[in-house]
């Protein structure tokens, strides 16, 4: 494992902790898209089916369990928690995320490394992860003002993707090992989706102003 991969994983982990902290400390999930969180829960469950069949390392196993449990916990809080669910911006979270699920599954059935249950679900999870942030970005854009923790959460998620791209470049040139092209292309698309958000995030940071996304 190289430094970029580790930095990516840690940024991802911190993003989840920031989100959990926001929900726990403020007892509020305002600004957070339940649809994006449901997509992430689906991404991790579909991808980590190999938890029971392949052992890679203690690190991988622990991280997989953490990502599955934390994403399910967030969905549970937003749907079931007596106090937290009241702050959910349901009327702003209108992205038709079911379409993403159907399209990604369709693409995974056609484009995969091997037509087996595990590989199709793996490809599905990669495609779905690439677009899972869309409901969240739409919600932020609709609400206009973004609170600090939500802004940091999305920024860290984007940072995780950026580190993964550096990791693939490093692996290609230094380790002479190319990561799977399905991940690489999906990863590039996923990171590109953050470009607009990053632009406004840096602008607000530079001007020391509250993050505001134009409609």
């Amino acid at each position: 494992m190289n430094i970029f991969r580790l930095a990516g994983d840690m940024t991802h982990l911190i993003s989840v902790l920031v989100l959990l902290l926001k929900i726990y400390a403020t007892k509020s999930c305002s600004g957070i898209s339940l649809k994006t969180q449901e997509l992430y829960a689906m991404v991790f469950v579909a991808r980590y089916l190999d938890l029971f069949t392949d052992y890679i390392s203690f690190y991988n196993t622990v991280m997989k369990i953490v990502f599955i449990l934390s994403s399910l916990a967030i969905v549970w809080c937003m749907r079931m928690h007596r106090v937290v669910k009241r702050s959910y911006d349901k009327e702003l979270d209108t992205f038709r995320h079911n379409i993403l699920i159907v399209v990604c599954f369709g693409v995974a059935v056609i484009i995969n490394e091997k037509f087996t249950l595990r590989e199709v679900f793996w490809a599905f999870s990669i495609y779905l992860e690439a677009v899972a942030i869309l409901p969240q970005l739409v919600l932020l854009q609709r609400s206009g003002n973004v609170d600090n923790l939500t802004g940091q959460y999305v920024f860290l998620l984007g940072g995780y993707r950026a580190f993964y791209i550096l990791n693939w470049i490093y692996r290609y040139f230094v380790e002479q090992r190319f990561s799977r092209w399905i991940s690489a292309i999906s990863g590039l698309i996923q990171t590109a989706l953050y470009a607009d958000f990053f632009y406004y995030y840096f602008l607000s940071w530079k001007n020391n102003a509250k993050l505001h996304l134009p409609a």
């Binding site: 991802h12 392949d54 490394e113 090992r177 190319f178």
Partner: peptide
């Protein structure tokens, strides 16, 4: 990146 290789990334 041959087929059947383990998915070692998260």
């Amino acid at each position: 990146s041959s087929q059947g290789e383990l998915h070692d990334e998260l």
